[in-house]
């Protein structure tokens, strides 16, 4: 078998193309569980804020701690399943990223003294921003998901009136759950 340089170049270009698509899919699949988890937490937390307002602060603290613990447990589970040393360490980056975002967001919410309404819009838009940035490297699906989440959050901020928490439960948490299911389809 003889392979000409033009054919070798074309085959290598084909390989690069499918590898890019495969990496995007594998990344979507790996992060979809975390997105589903935080979507469920946001849904529950915002429902609690609407229906159980006096206890919502404690409920949010409990949900956030549960989310962080579950993120770490999911990373440990993924690492246990994955014996490939080149990718095993990558799974730890997901809870590490979540922790960094929490720390940065909490700091600026404290320093900024936002209203409760702005605070409720802050986290989903902050998360949308991260998804869009991540999507620039990984693939367009994450950019589309981030833009959708930000648009729904801002629409709720300006238009939902006294149903803001319920809007955020569905528009924020529900959208994240939808995005997580879509990415793992």
């Amino acid at each position: 078998m003889t392979v000409k340089p033009e054919e070798a170049g074309a085959l290598l270009a084909d390989i690069a193309g499918v590898e890019r698509r495969a990496r995007a899919f594998l990344t979507y699949n790996r992060i979809s569980d975390s997105i589903l988890l935080w979507g469920a937490i946001w849904f529950a937390g915002n429902c609690a804020t609407h229906f159980l307002a006096p206890w919502s602060g404690w409920i949010w603290i409990g949900l956030d701690l549960f989310g962080l613990a579950a993120s770490v447990a999911m990373a440990m589970g993924a690492r246990h399943r994955d014996t490939d040393a080149s990718t095993a360490h990558i799974n730890w980056r997901i809870p590490a990223v979540v922790l960094c975002f929490f720390a940065f967001g909490s700091l600026w919410l404290h320093l900024g003294q936002f209203s409760w309404r702005a605070e409720a819009a802050f986290w989903p838009t902050f998360f949308s921003f991260a998804m869009i940035l991540f999507g620039l490297w990984v693939g367009r699906a994450l950019i589309a998901a981030g833009v959708t989440l930000a648009a729904l959050t801002l629409a709720g901020y300006w238009l939902s009136g006294s149903y803001y928490d319920l809007w955020m439960a569905i528009g924020g948490g529900g959208t994240l759950i939808g995005i997580g299911l879509w990415l793992r389809r």
């Binding site: 084909d14 495969a22 994955d82 014996t83």
Partner: peptide, 17 residues
């Protein structure tokens, strides 16, 4: 060509994925 693409995709995944 197609077998090369298949192997390229599967090679991107972790060893037991």
């Amino acid at each position: 060509s197609l077998r090369l693409k298949i192997m390229a995709v599967l090679n991107t995944a972790a060893r037991n994925e």
